[in-house]
Amino acid sequence: MKANIEDKRKAVMDAALKLFTERGFHGTSTAQISKEAGVATGTLFHYFPTKEDLINNLYFEVKGDLSRTMVKDLELQNTFKDKLKKIWDNLVRWGLDNHNEFLFVGQFCNSPYISNFTREEVMKEYVFLHKLVDDGIKNGDVKELPSELIIAMFYQNSRTLVDVISGCGPSCNENKFIDDGFEIVWNGLTKN
Rank of each mutant, 00 (worst) to 15 (best):
I150T: 01
F117N: 13
L149Q: 09
L84N: 00
W88C: 01
F104E: 01
G24L: 06
R93V: 12
R159E: 13
N173K: 09
V164E: 13
F104M: 01
L54A: 02
N192L: 14
T21Q: 05
N57F: 05
R9S: 03
E75K: 13
D53H: 14
F177N: 12
G27N: 04
Q107E: 12
D73S: 10
D163S: 14
F20P: 03
I5Q: 11
F154T: 00
C172R: 08
E6G: 08
M1H: 06
F128C: 11
G106V: 01
V39Q: 01
G64W: 07
G140C: 04
Q107I: 15
L17W: 06
R93H: 12
F182V: 05
K8M: 06
N187E: 14
E183H: 05
D180F: 12
N4W: 12
S158E: 03
A3N: 14
F20L: 13
L54G: 05
S115C: 04
G106A: 06
T69G: 08
T43D: 04
I114H: 03
T21Y: 01
Y59M: 12
Y155F: 12
K51F: 12
D180L: 13
L132M: 12
A37C: 03
N187F: 07
V142H: 01
D134R: 10
F102C: 08
L103N: 11
M153Y: 11
L58T: 09
L74K: 08
F80L: 06
G181L: 06
R68D: 10
A37D: 04
F182E: 01
G42R: 04
R23M: 06
N187C: 14
F20D: 01
Y126N: 09
D134M: 11
Y126R: 03
V122S: 04
V105L: 10
F102E: 05
Q32L: 10
V62T: 14
H130F: 10
V133M: 07
K131N: 15
V62W: 07
W88R: 00
K35L: 08
P146S: 00
M13L: 10
T50F: 02
D89A: 09
E144I: 02
H46M: 02
F108E: 08
V162H: 05
G106K: 07
A40T: 00
F108R: 03
F117Y: 11
K124N: 10
R93D: 07
Q156P: 00
N139W: 09
T28M: 07
F108N: 05
E174Y: 12
V92L: 10
K191R: 12
G169K: 09
L129G: 00
K72A: 09
E75A: 09
K85H: 04
A15S: 12
F25C: 07
G24Q: 00
N56K: 04
I184L: 15
L161T: 10
K35D: 08
L17I: 04
W186Q: 06
K83R: 14
E183R: 07
F128Q: 03
V133C: 05
G188E: 07
T79V: 03
S171A: 14
K85C: 00
E148D: 15
F25K: 02
K176M: 11
L44F: 06
Y126K: 01
T118N: 09
F117C: 11
M13R: 10
F117M: 10
G42W: 00
K35R: 13
D163P: 13
A31W: 03
S171Y: 15
F20T: 02
